[in-house]
């Protein structure tokens, strides 16, 4: 069985967001780049499955759509434990464009399970996984918070309002994963970091594709009015303000 994890190269979650070129582009200056947190959880789960099902999973491949500046992030995924990586050499324009590129590679590689994080913490599209599934005509399970292989059968659970559903599905399929799929992301070991340098990172050229969306301009949210501080000895006042001023209780 071959597992593919689609990874996105995103600014570290603590990044202070700034824009340049008259607020039409993200300011890369000084930004630390990471594996998108949901994608990192997906990778962790895939590695856990490989450890628990020795022999059943032959290969874990990470695929990214990006330019060469994504390579350090891809190497990190290899250091965490992926066996090989494919980078599709293109600037990721929008979700449709990204899914188009991923679909092309995934079709050729014939993976059995494809994992995508439910969203990326840059453009928060929460769309690539579903789009990819439709392009490939594969079943998709979204909001997946549990994935296991038991006696060769895939067991996947998805989050629903107030609970979970246990699903059966056909292979190949795409799981669009969210929190819960793995406990905590794995940290690369020293040995992992050393071997990552020699693991295959194949760069393939992009296919033609047009985006559906253009992100024309950006702005920062308006700053809030100052917080009204209430004396800790007078908690009653807070409740009064919430009732009479904010009218929320």
């Amino acid at each position: 069985m071959k597992i593919c994890i689609c990874i996105s190269n995103v600014p570290d979650t603590t990044t202070k967001i700034k824009f340049v070129n008259n607020n039409t582009a993200f300011d890369n200056a000084g930004v630390q780049w990471i594996i998108n947190p949901w994608d990192e959880l997906a990778l962790t789960r895939a590695l856990d499955l490989k450890d628990a099902n020795a022999g059943a999973i032959e290969k874990i491949t990470v695929v990214n759509v990006g330019l060469a500046d994504a390579d350090p992030t891809i190497r990190k995924a290899l250091a965490i434990g992926a066996d090989n990586a494919i980078r599709i050499n293109a600037e990721p324009k929008d979700a449709y464009f990204i899914a188009t590129q991923l679909a092309e590679v995934i079709k050729k590689e014939a993976f059995d399970i494809i994992l995508c994080g439910i969203e990326s913490c840059d453009y928060n599209g929460s769309t690539v996984g579903g789009m990819l599934a439709e392009m490939l005509a594969y079943p998709s399970v979204s909001s997946a918070s549990f994935l296991d292989i038991q006696n060769g059968q895939i067991i996947v659970k998805r989050e629903i309002d107030g609970g979970q559903e246990l699903l059966g599905t056909k292979l190949p399929f795409i799981a669009i994963v969210q929190k819960g799929i793995a406990k905590e992301p794995r940290i690369p070991s020293m040995r992992g970091i050393m071997t990552a340098k020699t693991k295959p990172l194949q760069v393939v050229e992009a296919v033609a594709g047009e985006p559906f969306l253009s992100y024309n301009s950006f702005e920062l949210p308006k700053s809030k009015a100052a917080c009204k501080k209430i004396d800790p000895e007078n908690v009653k006042e807070l409740v009064n303000l919430l009732h009479n001023e904010a009218k929320v209780i």
Partner: peptide
Amino acid sequence: AHNNTGKAIAPRLSVRLKAGLVAG
């Protein structure tokens, strides 16, 4: 809705209809 169901179907519909999707 931008909930579990919307996130599951809207991206597939976007590809099916060749219709741009803005989420959230």
